[in-house]
Design a protein around this nucleic acid. Structure first.
Lengths: 222, 222
DNA sequence: ATATTATTCGAACAATCGTTCGATAATATA
DNA sequence: TATATTATCGAACGATTGTTCGAATAATAT
């Protein structure tokens, strides 16, 4: 009953969400039946509905929980950092770090973005828009500061998101470079590309130790 | 009955594929029923099965036709061009050009890649692998030629694909930069980023006229 | 005009889906 | 122990799904 101990209910909810996310990630939301989830969680079909009101709400819970963490971690990490290049670098690190450590949930968030409708969609999407705006403003700031010309802001923004969010299609933690390397590579390609090869102070580009970046372990992983 | 006149059957098949791709792109493959397609094509439910054997084969026909065109156009375009930077630039142009002009089909190809199983999946995937290998070898060649270090080849390759294939999530032809601009932006960001700001002969980077690149109009658009 | 082929369709099938509901079990409270 | 609350479940419901099949129609050739 202490503060840090989640209730029995919450623990099981998290277990259900985590298990569901894994199945959604593997076979897709629409191809997954509640019966599949029941089987994987060792619960009954109807018993699951004690933890969510509908299949769509289940998807929402996964996406919302996931995205709230990314956004929260990001804000916490960027607080107090002024230099926009450094801020962007931290944002990329955070995004990729969370993505790799929560691949199932992030895949469900990226790939099933339109599998959710109505108000639940709006709720997730408003957070998404905040995040996109944050990146876009950051890039705008950087572009101005470095006199970057002839790069369209929207193209730049979504190119970055494309690089980062596409990884669920190919990244294999066991055979690919680790998160630090992934982050370093993507940051260099994108940032150098954006700046068109203009000089950036090395200390702003170099890969910082990750020590200041808590390894993002979501509540879902306990 | 001339060579260039497709048979009545082929014309209607193309019409079915194109219409289906539009619906798949809008509501997703699994959320689309054959009845939806029947309604949109003004055909009967069972009448559709004269043109495909199953829903999955319908998806395959869309993906296969689409990808074959991209790959074919690409090879034709690159034939005779030796310089790897130029080759890459042409490949990006072709990819984005086709993507923008066949957004529905390309979205279905990108987003429903795993909605297809078994042999049909293998068939599409083998072409995909050829395409990926082509890009990867190209990037490797470029990296060697320019002494690029500390960039992981797989990260670079899939970063490029991420930038290009993500566009179905955001690109709006009516409010965004046109294909030429899109291509130019993405090429500059990626290529300059890959080369780490190292000098590239300007004539290799500058946006060529698109005159030599036939506007990709698939058979599906008549 | 007739025979042949190509194309379309209505009606029905079995399977699977998300969801509900009343009953039961487990746990906490008194 | 008696009671209230929390958690779980089996069984069933109506709706929708992809697919089939034999007949009907249209188009074409003979």
């Amino acid at each position: 009953m202490t503060v840090e101990t989640a209730s029995k209910y919450d623990q099981k909810l998290v277990y259900v969400l985590k298990t569901s996310a894994a199945i959604f990630a593997e076979k897709g939301y629409h191809s997954t039946s509640i019966r599949d989830i029941a089987r994987a969680t060792n619960m009954s079909l109807s018993g699951l509905y004690y933890y969510f009101g509908s299949k769509e709400e289940l998807l929402f819970l996964i996406q919302d929980y996931c995205f709230s963490t990314v956004l929260g971690d990001c804000r916490r990490l960027l607080a107090g950092v002024d230099d926009p290049v450094r801020r962007l670098k931290l944002l990329i690190e955070n995004h990729l770090n969370y993505f790799v450590n929560n691949m199932n949930e992030m895949k469900v968030l990226s790939h099933e973005a339109n599998s959710i409708k109505g108000d639940l969609f709006k709720k997730v999407n408003s957070k998404k828009r905040q995040y996109v705006d944050l990146v876009m403003e950051l890039l705008d700031e950087i572009a101005r500061a470095h006199n970057v010309e002839s790069i369209d802001l929207r193209v730049a923004t979504f190119s970055l998101f494309g690089m980062m969010n596409w990884i669920y299609n190919w990244y294999n933690p066991r055979k690919d470079v680790d998160v630090a390397g992934l982050s370093q590579n993507i940051t260099r390609i994108f940032l150098t590309g954006l700046l068109g090869g203009k000089a950036v102070k090395p200390d702003k580009l170099e890969t910082g130790r990750e020590s200041h970046l808590d390894r993002t372990v979501s509540v879902w992983q306990q």
